[in-house]
Each structure stands twice: as structure tokens, then as C-alpha cells.
Design a binder for these strands. Sequence first.
DNA 1: TTTTGAGTTGTTCGA
DNA 2: GTCGAACAACTCAAA
Length: 455
Amino acid sequence: MNSIVLFKNNLRINDNPALFHASESENKILPVYIHDDINIKKQLGSASRYWLYNALISLNKSLNFNLSFYRGDTIDILMKIIKKYEISDIYCEQPFLKNDIILFDQLKLKLSQLNVKFNIHNCTLLWSPQYILKKDNTPYKVFTPFYRKGCLEKIKPDLPVGVPNKLNFLPKDDSEIDDLKLLDKFRWYDKMDSQWDISENSAVKILDSFLESSIYNYKKGRDFPASNDTSKLSPYIRFGLISVNKIWYALDRLNFDRNIAHYKSELGWREFSYYLLYHFSFMDTKNLQTKFDDFNWENSSEKFDAWKKGETGYPIVDAAMRELWETGYIHNRMRMVTASFLVKNLLVDWRLGESWFWDCLFDADYASNIAGWQWTAGTGADAAPYFRIFNPILQGEKFDSEGKYTLKYIPQLKDVPLKYLQKPWEFSSNLDYANRIVDLKDSRDNALYQYSLIK
DNA sequence: TTTTGAGTTGTTCGA
DNA sequence: GTCGAACAACTCAAA
């Protein structure tokens, strides 16, 4: 008899519990990737598809070119494969997002009718959301108690299972990755090939080098976009080129210090995002705090476009938006600055910002992206006071005090004295640079007024 | 049920 | 330049 290992969002062979457990049985293995754009609520963005394409090439190589590629409805395709081969078992990652859970419930039913065993393993999260509840059996809505009491004090994450000892593959069908049609016709991504090495090995190398030095400056350094003190592992984590369990236990092997604890808590935030989406699945399109449903978004397409292009006239915002466009990534603090600016100063609905990040970020994660935007907008799971509005001038001066990050992405400001870099209009009105699309004080006051209306 | 303490990341104003 | 208070009261978690 034979097994299918169905890959979804965990495209790796090291610490992949689904693959590992399949390899422990006597069955031969048919590794399968199905690009299912039917049972999906939101199509993958362009950046995600490019990353996925390269991650699949890497995975296929790791599997000695035994990976089969299919496109279409997951259940239809699996039924065909099951008919063709003598399949007794399917191994797959456990789903945590609502659409996937529904799909897997249907699949489970079909498989039980066919007497095919469906083995699902948690490959994605350190803590399964369904078991983390308060004493009254309701889900947490605040990060700190969720993380400390719900996660850390409750149970240790699973130990990594390592690489399968042996893999006996079933001869596969002819199928090509290009059948998946992942890449856009316009080759915008050519410039990305030199910036990102998209492979499982590369993820391990990045982790190792991060743990050798930068981690010890993480707590402070993570705030400065020009420094190199973040791991930049997020896109690798997104498609599971590295497992969070492996990262967690690699951190555990280091001598405990506050930098390591802080990095772990950031992994905790990823858990929290999945957790919220699991328990409050409506928040993918609706405000978690429903009182914001009446909020009067301005949604000016001109302002939204200027933000997307990095032409708001505020250097730190524009630098970050250009970083996104040029690299498929934005530094964490810069995500907050740009998101706050869009939602609060421009009064554009967080869902529009969320969709732009979804399209452009290599680490675009369904749960993290939504939870992050709702947090910034003040509509999410946080007691974040609505009057917390980032001031892009102050943020730029504080966190890019030497202007390195700003000038990297907006070189035409190189002749502006550092003192004026974040407010170049005070230096000269004759610069080759966008005019401010809103006044900071006016737009702030207006946001505060708009927020006061829905209290 | 009631009470108490606390909540990722900020800014502005006035002393 | 530096510091604390105000922003404005709310929801959550847990005793």
C-alpha cells in the first residue's frame, strides 16, 4: 500500500511531522502539492506566488524530484490519485484557518468512505489554538495572558522530529511546476532573485547566523530599520521552509537572556494571530471590535495610491513603502508606521492596507497580516488606545537618526541636511520629492475626531 | 458577582 | 532639553 504526503504550507523535509510519520510506515510515498485556488477565500498575492514557486522548486529537489504538482480542487484531485494508486493513507499538516478546516472536514468524510486513513499532524504552530482557553473556557483576547498563562505555563511545544531516516517514493506522474501558473507574466520578480535565497537550507543558514550574533542585540536593535538585528526569517516561516519548533528549541539551547525571551514572544505573536483567527474567524474581513463597523473611512483612492507608491511626502513612510516594493519585505516598526499613517492620517480602511501588504509581502501570512492590521487600526484584539497615532517625523528621527534607511530608498534626499531629512519641506520647497498629501496635525486631529464619534 | 489591576511598539503639552 | 501627565475611559483576566 501507498501513502500520499500532501504539502500545503510546510514546504520542508526537516521537522515536518506529516512527512516524518509517513516515512515511518512501510508504505511508499507519493509527495503531492495541490495549488487549490478554488477552496480559498483569498487568492495568493503576487509576492506569495513567487515565493511559493521557488519554495516548491527547492522542496522538489530535497525530495529527489519526486514531488507531483496539481492545480484545482483538492478533493477532486486526491480522489483521482487515490483511484490511480493503491493509497491507504494520506498525511498532511493540520489546518488552523477556517476555510482549510472546512475543506479538511469534507475530505475526512470522503476518505473514511473509501477506507483511506487521514493522518493530520500539527506542522504549523507551537500551541494548538483549540486547547488554549481561560478558566471559564472562553478564548483569550489579550496577548500577555494568552502567551504566559495559556502557552508558556501550559505545555511545552513539540520537539522537532528531524529529517526522515528513509524515504521510499512511488514513481510519479508527469507534472510540471509551471502547470501551477504561479508566476506573473510581467517579470517584476527578476530583481528579487538576487535578494532572497528561497530554500530550506538557506532558512537554516539564516537562523544559524542570526543566533550567532544579532539575537543578542534583538530587543533594542529590532526597532532600527537600518540595523541588521532582526532575523528576517518571516518569509521562510510563512511557507514553512523552517519550522517554528526548530527555531524555538534552537533558542532554548542558548543561555537564557531577555533578547531570546523577546524573540520568542514575537513567535508568540504569530501564535496569537492564528489563535484569534481560529476563535474569531469573522475577523478576516470584519472588525473584531464591532463598534468600529460604523467608522467613517474616507478611502480616498488618490491618497491610497500615493501611499502605495511611496509618494506621501513623508520620508520614513515613503522609504518603507519603497522597501516593500523593492524587496518584498518591510521592517517591523516601519509596518506600524506605514499602517498607522494609512489608517489614521489618511483614514483609509485597514482592509485596503491589508490587501496591499497581502499582495506585496513575501511573508504575507493570512493570520498575522489581518491581526496586525486590526491591531494598528485599533479594531483588533488590543486595548491600544485609539489616540495612539504614530508621528512619522518623530519615528523617523528616533529610529533612523542617521537617515541610512531613509536615504537607501529615497536617494534624491541625499543633499538634505540630516536635521531636515524627515521634514524636507522645511529645508527647501524645490526638491525632487513628493509634496505632503496631508498635514500631520490636521489629519491627526481629524482621526481623533472620527474615532470619538464611534465611542 | 464584584472588584481590582493591567494592557507590545505613542504623542503632545506644559512646567 | 527633559519629564510627567493627559489623551479618555474601556475591556479583559483573574481573584
